[in-house]
């Protein structure tokens, strides 16, 4: 954490910088100064696309993308209200498919996501196309050892 000297190169190269409420380097700064709540409440970690541009260009070799992973994980753990709630709902819906089937199941994912967000109309243009092109299977690809996957989820979901 003390590695960061606040040069801002991460923010300068961040592809989603324009959509963020505060700059990525500022999230680091807030945590350096002990303003954890402010940092955890920010939308920035949720908008981070994990593209690693910041990490590969950081002059101090600070892995900011991984740091953002940690911030999000702590925010979930602490139950901080996530302003970019759709993004979190998407991730949850995605992981639910894996938990149940072992692989991603796009129909289930989209259905669950839409139930959660009540955003029923987005993507209506692409889904039928995907069906027509035979890309969306109506049934999930279940793996055999779903028990193992469920157990991994169970063991890793406990409060630390």
């Amino acid at each position: 954490m003390s590695l960061c000297y606040q040069c801002g190169k991460c923010s300068a190269g961040c592809p989603v910088r324009y959509y963020m409420d505060i700059a990525p380097n500022k999230v680091v700064r807030l945590i350096q100064l002990g303003y954890y709540e402010e940092a955890l409440k920010s939308e920035t970690p949720w908008l981070c696309a994990g593209c690693l541009t910041c990490s590969v260009r950081c002059p101090k070799e600070f892995d900011l993308a991984k740091f953002m992973d940690a911030v999000r994980e702590i925010a979930i753990e602490k139950g901080v209200e996530v302003k970019q709630e759709n993004i979190l709902k998407f991730h949850k819906a995605f992981l639910d498919q894996i938990k149940n089937h072992g692989r991603s199941y796009e129909v289930g994912l989209v259905a669950e996501y839409k139930m959660k967000t009540l955003d029923l109309f987005q993507d209506v243009d692409s889904a039928p196309g995907m069906f027509l092109k035979g890309k969306l299977d109506l049934l999930p690809h279940n793996i055999k050892n779903r028990k193992e996957i469920k157990s991994i989820f169970k063991k890793t979901s406990g409060k630390k």
Partner: peptide, 18 residues
């Protein structure tokens, strides 16, 4: 055989262990 999802973005942005 019986490969499963790598966890993708959704896992690493929310749960490192998972």
């Amino acid at each position: 055989n019986d490969w499963s999802c790598c966890g993708a973005t959704s896992a690493h942005v929310t749960n490192h262990k998972l």
